[in-house]
């Protein structure tokens, strides 16, 4: 079942195309990775789907609903949860409170004037934290966490709204190699179990080729290749423009590991 349809998105900053006729689809339960060199337009594409940026033209349809150019909170309401390249959390709050805020928002309680926020949805928040392996850190200030842990909290926050689509901008940046695999495996499992479509970007080849169902390569705002990990890895142009020989070797290794 097709969850997300992105059709010919364009975005220019000044005279430079950050996205040019970007089109792709994503099915429920599918993991789609976008890769490309820095400045290729990955984050721009993400931010257009997430509602942080308005596209100049093109359309985005989620589950049959047009969400093109709508603000982030409207996109969220349609079922999009996301994490950011530079993790965005509520730094003055505890880990649990960060997740609780997402739950408060989901239940439409953000304007309640006299309830005690700390008690609202605490159990549900702890359960979400348990899923991402952060249950033990629930009452620590989020500002004290290691960066990798912050990323996990962001995932829990994104999951709190029971999204249909999860956008993850470099979800494993700043993590130790072992942690990365764990997080990606977890994400992939959740995606499949709950039928969540996952769109993510990564620089880590293992995270891409080891976990993606499909891979899309973006260079200077344009998609130059898309398909299964094997197909993309074998693409001559991708090799030339992006992966290079070393990258291809890493991708191959990752794929082997995943298959094994």
């Amino acid at each position: 079942m097709t969850l997300l349809v992105v059709d010919r998105l364009n975005k220019r900053f000044g005279g430079v195309f950050a996205a040019r006729d970007v089109s792709f689809t994503l099915a429920a339960g599918e993991m789609l990775a976008i890769i490309g060199p820095n400045g290729a337009g990955k984050s721009t594409t993400f931010n257009m789907v997430g509602g942080q940026l308005k596209p100049d033209s093109g359309s985005i349809t989620l589950d049959g609903q047009a969400i093109t150019g709508r603000p982030a909170r409207a996109v969220w309401r349609c079922g999009v949860g996301r994490t950011f390249q530079v993790a965005q959390t509520f730094v003055s709050m505890s880990v649990a409170e960060n997740v609780q805020m997402a739950l408060v928002s989901r239940h439409g309680e953000s304007r309640r004037l006299f309830a005690d926020t700390r008690r609202l949805h605490r159990e549900a928040a702890l359960a979400l934290l348990a899923e991402v392996g952060m249950r033990a850190e629930a009452d620590r200030p989020v500002s004290e966490l290691a960066y990798g842990d912050v990323k996990r909290v962001e995932l829990a926050v994104a999951l709190a709204s029971q999204p249909k689509l999860l956008l993850m901008d470099e979800p494993t940046a700043g993590m130790a190699p072992r942690e990365r695999g764990g997080l990606m495996t977890l994400t992939a499992r959740l995606a499949r179990e709950r039928g969540i479509g996952v769109l993510y970007t990564e620089h880590d080849m293992e995270a891409v080729f080891g976990h993606a169902d499909r891979v899309m390569v973006l260079v200077r705002g344009e998609i130059i290749a898309a398909g299964s990990p094997d197909h993309v890895r074998g693409d001559a142009r991708v090799r030339q423009v992006y992966l290079g020989e070393a990258g291809t070797a890493a991708a191959l290794k990752a794929r082997r590991k995943a298959v094994a």
């Binding site: 509602g51 942080q52 982030a72 909170r73 969220w76 950011f84 965005q88 997402a102 928002s105 989901r106």
Partner: peptide, 9 residues
Amino acid sequence: TRAGAIGLD
């Protein structure tokens, strides 16, 4: 940014 992304206006 985060507030917007969890649906807060």
